[in-house]
Structures are given as C-alpha cells and as structure tokens.
C-alpha cells in the first residue's frame, strides 16, 4: 500500500491532466482565425463559396455533435432542423409575404419548438431506439416536403428567397457572404463551446458515460438530454438559415436521410465529442462533395472509402487521432 502511494504521489505532481487553453491551443485558434478572415484576399470565388458551405456544414455538424459526441445520442434525423428552418424562412418570405427579420425569427423559433416536440418523442428511448425514432421523424418531414406540394412546391422545391441585408450590409457577393457566414460560425462555435465546457456540459457528458449513476447522484438525465436536444435543434436551425440564404433555394433532399447521415459522418470522421472534430469533418465532407464530384462521378463512394480509411486508422476521428500521432512523434505521450 505505502509503496504504491509513494510512486503515485510523484506521478501526480508530474502529470497534470489536460490543461485547457494552453498557449498551443490559443495559438491554433488565433492562426486559424486569421487565416479564415483573410481567405478572400488570396482565393477565387469557387473556393470562397466552398468555404462558406463548409462553415454552414460545420455549424450543422457542431450542433449534431452536442447530441452524438457529448450526449452519446446518435441521431439520424438532425437534417430535420436544418431543412425545416430553411423551409420556414423560404416559405414565410416568398409566400407568407414577410420580411427577412420576421421570417428568420419564425424559422429559428418554429424549428426550436419542433425540436422540443421531437425530443419528447425521441427521448423515450436512447441508443438504437433513439436513432430509429429520429430517423422516422425526419422521414415524416421529408415525406411532407415531397407530397404536400400545394405548400412546399414538392419536388420543385421553394425558390425566390433573396439574401437579407444584415445591418444594411449587402451579402450578395461571394466574399461578403463568406464573411457573414464566418461571423455566424464564430458566434455559434463559441456559444456551443461554452455550453459543452459548462457545469451543465459536464453533467451532459456524465449522462453519456454513466446515466444510471448520474440519476443516482441527483441529475435529471431525461431533462438534461431534452435541453441538449432543443439546443442542438436551435443551432441546426441557424445552419438551415445560412443554408437557405446561400442557395436561395430549398429542396426536400435537404431533409433526407442522406443529409442527416452526411452530418453524422462529418462528426464521426472529425472526432465526436471534440470541438474541432466536427469542423474538420464538415470540411472533409464538403470538399469531397464539391471538389471531388467534378472528377469522380460516384463521390458518395469516395466519401465512403475515405470514411472507412479513417475508421480503420483513426477510429477516434481525425482531430483526436492527429493529436495522438503528434504526441507520439514529439515524445509527449506516455
């Protein structure tokens, strides 16, 4: 006993467990922030537009990651919230005769309320049950978007939406829309990061790792999950707004299982339960989708192969996997 304690004490003093906001981490944030800001100065419209789409996909993946990575709740229906918000914004603007502000607020609010209702239904289960219910609910929305043509314009989708002028700024150009998306992305990233690092976020991770113990400790596991579900739904709606402003068009495929699965793929490929992971994963998916599809006809197959490669060689995802390799090469790991 005493021998064990002696060595442990020495090690305890030597090994502080994961310090937050180390200089390295802050430097990574600063450099990537500066690069992102300056991007339009040294690249053409094709890449700027790709970058905007990545930012939108990243907000979507980050919001899904709150459930998948931090809550341990794998959803295959998260595109519901992106799609619903996009449809709300487009419909109330083009058919409801509302201005941008009102239609955007309705989109955010309406989608969040629907997330609340979906959460009530889906969180009757966890694990595979939860996955199936989220999938089923999103399929219902997808079906409605397709069939209820009088409202949704069915397979033709809704067009005619223009981009808003936030604070009187014109965001019709590729550069200005990119900067607009970057600001929204930064706000989303920070607010989701604060959420996951908070006391509530710690409780959420606890419900992922030991739900029974958490309940026995006094945590309302169900309510913690529901709040997270609603919060994730809200950020999904934010991504949906940007999405519909970018494309000025919305089609039922945005509500499809493929759209949800792409988000899940981004989260898992990048590293679920980390903040950088979903961003990297979203970039990967969007780059493959936009860039590779020009050269490879079955880009979906390529995505599948890349994903397989990641799962085999970096099962924890690109961001944590790279960190692990980095530590090994620099001798930092034990």
């Amino acid at each position: 006993m005493s021998k064990v304690e002696a060595t442990d004490t020495a090690a305890a003093a030597a090994a502080p467990v994961e310090k937050r906001n180390t200089p390295l981490r802050l430097a990574v944030y600063a450099v990537s922030g500066a690069l992102l800001l300056a991007l339009p100065l040294f690249s053409g419209d094709f890449y700027i537009n790709l970058a905007s789409q990545i930012l939108i996909a990243a907000i979507f993946a980050l919001s899904l990651n709150l459930l998948v990575g931090y809550g341990g709740l794998s959803s295959l229906g998260h595109a519901s919230f992106l799609g619903l918000s996009a449809y709300f914004a487009a419909w109330f603007f083009t058919r409801g005769g509302m201005d941008h502000t009102s239609s955007a607020l309705i989109a955010l609010f309406g989608t969040t309320v629907v997330a609340g209702l979906f959460g009530l239904i889906a969180l009757r289960a966890s694990g595979l049950g939860f996955l199936m219910i989220t999938l089923a609910l999103s399929q219902v929305l997808w079906g409605v978007a397709f069939r209820w043509s009088s409202v949704t314009n069915g397979d033709n989708g809704l067009s005619g939406l223009t981009r808003p002028m936030p604070f009187g700024l014109d965001i019709n150009g590729a550069d200005s829309f990119y900067w607009f998306s970057l600001v929204i992305f930064a706000v989303s990233f920070v607010l989701m990061a604060v959420f996951t690092e908070s006391a509530f976020g710690s409780a959420l991770r606890g419900t992922r790792d030991q739900p029974r113990r958490m309940a026995a400790l006094g945590f309302d596991v169900w309510l913690i999950r529901w709040i997270t579900f609603v919060y994730a739904g809200f950020w999904g709606a934010v991504a949906g707004l940007l999405y519909v402003y970018y494309h000025k068009y919305i089609h039922p495929t945005s509500l499809s299982i493929t759209a949800s699965a792409e988000g899940l793929l981004a989260v898992i490929a990048g590293g679920s339960g980390t903040l950088g992971g979903p961003v990297v994963g979203a970039a990967l998916v969007m780059i493959l989708k936009n860039y590779a599809s020009a050269y490879v006809e079955r880009w979906n197959m390529l995505l599948g192969l890349v994903f397989l490669f990641i799962v085999i060689f970096m099962p924890e995802g690109l961001v944590p996997g790279t960190k692990r390799l980095w530590k090994r090469f620099t001798g930092g790991g034990k």
């Binding site: 937050r20 604060v194 959420f195 690092e197 908070s198 006391a199 509530f200 976020g201 710690s202 409780a203 606890g206 958490m214 400790l217 006094g218 945590f219």
Partner: peptide, 18 residues
C-alpha cells in the same frame, strides 16, 4: 465533483466551466 454537483442548482449552469 459530479457527486457534489448533482445536489446543487449549479448543475443547470450553462455558462461557467465546472
């Protein structure tokens, strides 16, 4: 700390790190 947090209202705090 999770044991302590479970019985405190702080467990709902969504801003401040544990």
């Amino acid at each position: 700390t999770l044991g302590l947090l479970g019985l405190r209202t702080t467990r709902w705090n969504m801003l401040r790190p544990l």
